[in-house]
Nucleic acid binder design. Structure first.
Length: 491
RNA sequence: CGGGGUAUAGCGCAGUUGGUAGCGCGCUACGUUCGGGACGUAGAGGCCGGGCGUUCGAGUCGCCCUACCCCGACCA
């Protein structure tokens, strides 16, 4: 009733917004560009966090925490980093308030001006490498494999819930190595951790590849990324992993004594994913009825809706279904028993669909008599009546089916929206009429990439790993090319 | 940050030529309902985003803020 959401066909971005708000994931706040992540949304983020955190630890990393504030001067130390990040930061200039002399609340105390301004971190390379300087003396101190879960602030001009907010939550891994090869291997390893997470937990297929020089992180020698395709045909960068070379080691003078006795600069990587993944999750799978969550990330995997009109009926149903709830929980499945008596079943069905709960069990007097349950899956909305004593196994299998089903659906969508273009006309036509990924030849120069971006709003999302080599000519300049690269309009 | 729009009850909206507010949903109580978003009856709930003006009188007119939405530029 009051929860109508705009359809995707009608207005995709309005649909996205409606969904995030009405499914209770997040809301806009009193602070421009900053969102309130609500309990249901945060529960999904916590699942993402715990899975990723486990993977980071399995790959040898430890968590640590560095300051929110970074001295302004730190940003002047790495030239490329300055170029890329000097702008759009929140700056702390004072450290105290005082009562307004005119009696109108509080004002900034001008006497409390900081000697050196502090920047609210937009990313932590600088403060971390400043710290690593004191942690590293010898090759025996390496590698350092540290991750931080934190909030960062980037004063974005235009924000969108989860996809681009002024403050967002993320993790940033910052590693230090004795050799170039090791740092590159780390960079590579982590982008694969992200890809594995995206595909096997979020059920979002991704393309792994290298960013071009234009799209590279400020201060990196190489940026690896995972790129996903949303249902409106736009690409979304879902994670990045940077090989930083010795840039930050040089900027912060971080050297180590090698086994051979030489004094060398340390090699670095950094990698991160953010609450933007929440946006990817929503946009990749959900439909006009609401969220569609992959079982592995759904805070509630199964909801039980008892259909009753009297308290006695509810107690009979409860007696029947609560043991099944227990059995499911014993199998590691999260189950909610929705026995609220102020909503009718139909209302509850709609609400649980909006929230994307993967599996719904309905049980009423008829089922009690027949020893059955009605089991519905969120992704396809199919319903099936199942004998109670086989329900637990059925649901365990069903959850796996759903996880696979939504991945397959997203994969199919991507396959159907990945095109090859051999001429510029064709390229533009695909972007305008179909959307999606376009594989096309490019002459390899930043200038041409910029030109194409200006003319079509499409960027090179990445040069996919294991990209087939193939001679051709650049769609824009006609100059020779040895491979196709992945273009798309992107978030 | 440029262009456009919006701001009235928790949410979604209406409010004619200026005369200090209504509707639907939700909420509270009671009753009837309950296998796809129930219904009746009785209630509660608003300095009309903020400020300054015009006026006897402003939700309504003017100016200035602020926030949100849409389209750009920027970015994860």
């Amino acid at each position: 009733m009051a929860k109508e959401i705009t359809s995707r066909a009608d207005n995709y971005s309005q649909w996205y917004n409606d969904l995030v708000i009405k499914a209770g994931l997040a809301d806009n706040s009193a602070v421009r560009g900053c969102m309130v992540i609500k309990p249901y949304g945060y529960a999904i983020w916590e699942k993402m966090q715990s899975i990723l955190d486990k993977k980071f630890k399995e790959t040898g990393h430890s968590n640590a925490y560095f300051p929110l504030f970074i001295p302004k001067s730190f940003f002047s130390k790495e030239a490329d980093h300055v170029e890329g990040f000097a702008k759009e930061c929140a700056v702390v200039t004072h450290y105290r308030l005082k009562n307004d002399p005119n009696g109108k609340g509080v004002v900034v105390d001008d006497d409390a001006k900081l000697e050196e301004e502090l920047i609210v971190r937009p990313t932590s390379e600088t403060i971390i490498w400043n710290t690593y300087k004191s942690w590293i003396q010898s090759y025996r101190d390496l590698p350092i494999l540290v991750n931080q879960w934190a909030n960062v602030v980037r004063w974005e001009m235009r924000t969108r819930l989860f996809l681009r907010t002024a403050e967002f939550l993320w993790q940033e891994g910052h590693t230090a190595h004795a050799t170039k090869e090791e740092a590159i291997e780390e960079t590579n390893k982590m982008v694969h951790v992200y890809a594995d997470f995206a595909e096997n937990y979020m059920a979002v297929p991704v393309i792994i590849g290298n960013k071009t020089a234009n799209e590279r992180f400020a201060g990196a020698l190489d940026t690896l990324c995972i790129e996903a395709l949303m249902q409106d045909g736009k690409a979304l960068q879902a994670g990045t992993s940077h090989f930083l070379g010795q840039n930050f080691a040089k900027a912060f003078d971080v050297k180590f004594a090698s086994k051979e006795g030489s004094l060398d600069y340390v090699w670095a990587s950094s990698w991160g994913v953010s609450t933007r993944l929440m946006g990817a999750l929503v946009m990749a799978h959900s439909d006009d009825n609401g969220l569609v969550l992959p079982p592995k990330l759904a805070p509630i995997q199964v909801v039980i809706v008892p259909i009753f009109n009297k308290a006695e009926q509810l107690s009979v149903i409860s007696e029947k279904v609560l043991p099944i709830k227990k059995q499911l929980e014993a199998r590691g499945i999260s189950v909610q028993f929705d026995d609220r008596d102020n909503f009718k079943p139909g209302f509850k069905f709609a609400e649980h669909e909006l929230k994307g709960i993967p599996v719904r069990i309905a049980i009423g007097p008829r089922d009690v008599d027949n020893n059955t349950l009605e089991i519905a899956r969120r992704d396809t909305l199919e319903k099936k009546v199942v004998a109670s004593d086989t329900a637990v196994d059925y649901i365990v299998d069903l959850l796996n089916d759903i996880q696979k089903g939504i991945y397959d659906k997203a994969f199919k969508y991507r396959a159907e929206h990945t095109f090859k273009a051999d001429t510029y006309e064709e390229f533009k036509q695909i972007l305008d009429e179909k959307g999606g990924f376009v594989l096309a030849h490019w002459d390899g120069t930043p200038e041409t990439e910029t030109l194409i971006k200006e003319e079509t709003k499409a960027t090179i999302r990445c040069i996919p790993f294991d990209n087939p080599q193939e001679n051709g000519v650049c769609i824009r300049t006609g100059k020779p090319s040895t491979q196709r690269v992945l273009f798309a309009r992107a978030y």
